[in-house]
Nucleic acid binder design. Sequence first.
DNA 1: CATTCTGTAATCTACTTTATTACAGTACAA
DNA 2: TTGTACTGTAATAAAGTAGATTACAGAATG
Lengths: 136, 136
Amino acid sequence: MNNGRFPISLHILTLLASAEGELLSSDYIAGSININPVLVRKEISNLRNHGLIESKEGKNGGATLAKPAEKIRLSDVYHAVQQASLLGNSKNKPNPDCPVGKQINQHLDHLYREIEGALLHKLEKMSLADFLRQFA
Amino acid sequence: MNNGRFPISLHILTLLASAEGELLSSDYIAGSININPVLVRKEISNLRNHGLIESKEGKNGGATLAKPAEKIRLSDVYHAVQQASLLGNSKNKPNPDCPVGKQINQHLDHLYREIEGALLHKLEKMSLADFLRQFA
DNA sequence: CATTCTGTAATCTACTTTATTACAGTACAA
DNA sequence: TTGTACTGTAATAAAGTAGATTACAGAATG
């Protein structure tokens, strides 16, 4: 499932937002989150692919926001990170001979989409700038 | 994290609701979900502890709903099953010397609670009977 | 051209989930 | 009253996943 990635990505973005255009190195970021720098670079790579971050290689390189923190919604972060469904993929293949088993995945999917919609609605309303503003 | 349990529990409850008071055995249920019967019995045990299911031991034993499907909300299922936070527990201990790291878990927790609230709002409005009704 | 970074792959370790095995206890029915 | 069909639960094994680590090529800078 891998949803420890949402807090990691949000932590990275929060640091970048608080650094105001400065380039931060993966080592520095990893030191704040307290995880391995390679993981940070992987997340940065992902966030870059989603257009939220820019990064620069080489000496004095690092990462910075690709756009102002006001323009980054937490739903963008969610989309960048989310792989599996919210309440759990039943990767089970239910019994197709059972009238319930045969249909349940379809109805679960529908339920998940509805719930995810509600969640996204919340996340769309909060920007990275809003999130950062909470920090004293 | 363990959130494959939500679909399993909902599957169990849906089967019981469709069986209309009949006692279903863990083997039968496991056959529909296509998982191990012991897992089913564990989930049944959990759902029973949460007052959603009753079960009877011995020959011709099995499980049945503890109350009408109209009275079981999907939020009840969620509560019975949910252990960890929705968008991922950063079990990381962020660097307390970093102004962002020091506070981020607190703000993440707040965010999670808000989001979970939105999700529960959706789930409260749907009963097990509503869910079952979707099946043709 | 040495240094300091990123980017990325490969591997290892730890953890978590699920399956399996085992068996005691309970209810029913012949 | 005894065999059978169940539940309940613990213990262990196997499979899967996340995260850490190592390694190294390549880029930018001074």
